[in-house]
Amino acid sequence: MLILAIETTGKLASAALLKGSQVCEAVNHTDYSHLQEIVPMIDRLLKENSIVPAQLDAIAVSRGPGSFTGVRIGMATAKGLAQVWNKPVIEVPTLASFAFGVYDWLPQGERLLFCPLFDARRNQVYSGVYEPLNGSAVIEDRAVDADEQMADLKTFFTTCHYDRVVFFGDGIKPCLEKLEALGIPYLLALEEDRYQKASSAARLAARLYEAGDVKDCYTCAPEYLRQAEAERKLKEKC
């Protein structure tokens, strides 16, 4: 299996190639220059690995939530590549992809929960809660008040007897006081593993691909988890 994965939903863009169980990744180190960098990065990644497009099984793209603009740059890029190369598109749920990262700092032998928190402003987060071993969601992805997410996380955590929660994402910083006030043991992901990565998206994409969960360039779509502001206001008026 050979999958190209694109991740542009956070502050750093990345691209990854998954070959069987191997993943190699290219990450840009300039914040928010996704448009400029993602296509050259993919081009280099393929050439450096001597991959020709015909060998690819699918294009995977982190579908959001995240920065609206970032989500769209990745999706537009994936659509273009998939259309020209005639490949299926795998929509990777961004929050779930954290459960598929490789983290050498994780404590061993503990029952962990993963909770990615993306800053959604207006005191909200985009967040889901995941079991790291199988990647299944115990609290589904949503745009939610940070306090509400914390309360629901705590309830689940205590009733189901976990040892620790691991937090990811750019929502950690604005929520830090809330995390401290939670009263449950937690760990913050190390800075280098804290944000979205194409390598994690690629690993989840491989599972989705095997499960036949694929779209094409016409049907793949972002997951914003939130309406456009103007759309919300218009509906309120009606």
């Binding site: 448009l35 296509v39 603009t69 769209r72 537009a76 890029t77 994936a78 659509k79 273009g80």
Partner: peptide, 19 residues
């Protein structure tokens, strides 16, 4: 409009590279 320009440009770049 920045967000609007981005869509045509991101897509065009992917197509130009791919083809």
């Amino acid at each position: 409009l920045a967000g609007a320009l981005l869509m045509g440009t991101a897509f065009a770049k992917a197509v130009a590279m791919a083809a």
